[in-house]
Amino acid sequence: MSCAQTIMDYGLRSIGIGERLLPRSDFTLCQQFTLIGSGLVWNIYFGVIALAAGFFLATALALGKGARSRWLRKPSEWFIFIFRGSPLFIQFFFAYFLFLSLKSVHPFFDPFSSAWAGALVVLFFNTAAYSAEIFYGALKSIPRGDVEAADAYGMSGWPRFRRVIWPTMLRLAWPGYTNEAIFLFHATTLVFFSGFPAQQQKGDALYYARYFADQTFNPFVPYPILAAYFILLTLVIIGLFGLVNRRLNRHLPAEQRRKIRLRPNLIR
């Protein structure tokens, strides 16, 4: 079977398109590259959606944690503490249990016991908590002068937040947030590894790497392939986030720009 044929058959296997049966014997490198790559679709799906949705919740949580009102501050603090303070392993475990019991309460919760929705919710909360902590740190280190200048222009409330505080917060938090994004994509490999069952052999990149490691009894081929895919993915993330970083810092003089980029990385 030619490699092109393999890609046709298995390129989208992870989402159920193509051959139903996975290869059972005579494993080729092409099959391993194709299937592990096809599984990457899930990692990207979980990563991108959780990150995008988590961004907004994180902003809200960071503002909540910085708020003066107890009723806003305490819940935000606890949310961040619980999701940052416990391993993802345990979060997946409890979420799966919880969603299973909610299922009997209302059919609305049906999809949450499968990975595509259930694991996504956990990852979404998890990344929101980590990002919120990074945003909160940045919020506290916004230069006083910037806020005072906004006041002097007569800005207050929403316009002041949208045009001064929020962009500055993002600019300061961006290096740390980049690291969080990398960690989140890595964390997506845990979904089928320990958290949620894989259905009809539709799994993520690690799932297929394990499948091959198990079928060929040789861990030294599939896992390095997986590693290579992830290094590429990480480079893409760093590249994209670098572009945003350039845009966030475009108003600064060149010398200062460099300094900000080299701020100590607040990694997760």
């Binding site: 890595h186 845990l190 896992y223």
Partner: peptide, 19 residues
């Protein structure tokens, strides 16, 4: 720095120890 940071730790653990 670049390579080890780029690989998810589970994937690394699954083959590195035997190697």
């Amino acid at each position: 720095i670049a390579i080890v940071r780029g690989v998810p730790d589970i994937a690394f653990f699954l083959f590195f120890v035997i190697a």
